[in-house]
Every structure is written in C-alpha cells, then in structure tokens.
Amino acid sequence: MDMSALNPVAIAVALIVAATPLVFAAIGELVVEKAGVLNLGVEGMMIVGAIAGFAFTQETGSTTVGVLAALIAGALLAALFAFMTQVLMSNQVATGLALTLFGLGLAAMIGQPYSGIPAPPFPELAIPGLSTLPVIGPLLFAHDWLVYASLVLTAGVWWLLNRSRAGLILRAVGENHDAAHAIGYRVVAIRTAAILFGGACAGVGGAYLSMVAAPLWVEGMTAGRGWIALAIVVFASWKPWRAFLGAYIFGGVSIAQLNLQAMGVAIESQYLSMTPYLVTIVVLVIISADKARARMNAPACLGRPFFAAG
C-alpha cells in the first residue's frame, strides 16, 4: 500500500460532493425538530426533490430552475405532512413513514420518462484567480454554487436559531408549546413554516444528488440518505455547525472506505459503516445524561402534538 498516492485535496473534494446532500437534508430537519416536530419523511422529500430537480432541468435547460423546482417539490410534500400532523393531528411518526413510502413511489412514477438520460452539466462557480491556487483553489474556490449555498444555509440557520427573534420563538415552540401558545405565539403556523422549510431543504439535498453528485436520475437513488440525515441531526445535538460537520463525517466514512480500498487496504466495510451510528448513540447519551445541557439542545416537545386546548 502506497500512502503517498493519497491526494488529500482530491479526497476532500469528493467528500464535499458526498456530504452536501446530507448537509441540506440535515439542516432542514434540524429546523423542523427545533420547532418540536419529528418528520421521518426526509427520504421521501429528498427523492421527490431529486426527480423534480432533474426533470425541470431537462425540460427548461436551466439548472437554477431545476434547483428551484426541487425546493418547491420538497416543500409541497412537506406541506402534506404539515397538513396531516398540524391540522388533522395525525401521528408524526406514522405520517412521516407514510410520507417516505408515498414520496418514493411518486418520484419513481414521475421519473419514468427521465431514467436513462444524462444530466446537463451543473455550472461550477469557480472564483476567478482564486480557483487556480494550489491546494486551497480546488478545495475552497472551485465548487458548484450549491456547495456555497449549503454553507450559507448552515450559517443562516445558526444565526436564525441563536441570534434572531424568530429563532427564539421557534425554539420556544419546540421547547414548550403550551407555554408558547399561552404567550400568544401561533404554534401551528410556526411549526408549519418550519416543516415547509425542512421539506425545501431536503428537496434541494435530493436534487444535489441527481444533478451534481451522480448526476442522473434512477428510481430509489437516494438509497437511504434521508435516514442518515435524521441520524446526523441527533449526532449534532441540534446544532447547525455540528450538523454540517456531522454530514462530512457521515459522508466521509463512505469516502474513506472507498479510498482506502482503492489504495489497497482491506477493510471490513460493514463494521466501519456502523461506527457513525454508534457514535451518534454515544453523543446522544452524553448530551442527554446531563439534564441541564440536554435541555439546551434537544427540543423538549420533539414529536409531541400540540392541541390548542386552552
């Protein structure tokens, strides 16, 4: 095995491609969970975003329209979840699972005419001058705009949650919906907004897969990434930058595996793949064990339905 063959820059670039869909989906779900809602339908929203992005890019020739369509498609599917859980008060866990089933089927149905077509190239937003620098050029300044968007999104959500009044309200709703309601916040409206935001993000995450990472459309192409996004949110203990990092770690495990193999290192890939999940459990235990710290992170009302009964 030849370690010198390892090109850290190239691996980092591959890592960015693998992690970006996860960043979008995880950040979206993080906001949803911060509002006290558990939407297990991330996989369904991602794949609907993947086909919407791909299809609209094909039809219009514009990747921007594609991304926009993915965003709307994800939000639309999320709207269904919001209507079910916030208005009809159906159970969130069951509804989220149904959403995944529905989304996978819907995407496959819509996508039938689109399989077997290559995706048009996604424009890279290489920053002139900087992108040609050695090492940091390809690492920092030569990506598609969605990569930068994922950074902006993470920063934005961090700011929203920690520095803005809207974030304070959102967290209050997730923390104690009865109290928030008593103060006069419209719990259902706020949660619905968060759910739509989460859906939009998941949609874009899916579109990244079909438009940049793979880039093509085939049925079932999200291959469980929506579920990984759910794990990342917990791993991150509901903190945006940690979710960003988590996406890179979860994505990184698979990249590391493939690169190690390509270098000729024999590894038991399944056991390596398990580790992020086990680490997530450990992280969860650590942040939950200290009740004071747990309260700062985990939304207390996560998954609890709110009834305006007072």
């Binding site: 190239a10 591959a14 093509l216 085939v218 192409m221 999200t222 990249i255 390509a262 890939s269």
Partner: peptide, 22 residues
C-alpha cells in the same frame, strides 16, 4: 473497490472518484 451493492448511484460515483484520485 468493492461497494457491496449492485445499485447505489451515489456510492458508485464516489467509488469512481476515489479510483480516479488513485
């Protein structure tokens, strides 16, 4: 590179990238 799947476009793309890097 063994990807342990017949079909996962994302992972196959990652594997291709890893091989190209090597």
């Amino acid at each position: 590179v063994w990807v342990n799947t017949w079909f996962d476009p994302g992972k196959e793309a990652d594997a291709a990238n890893a091989l190209i890097e090597q």
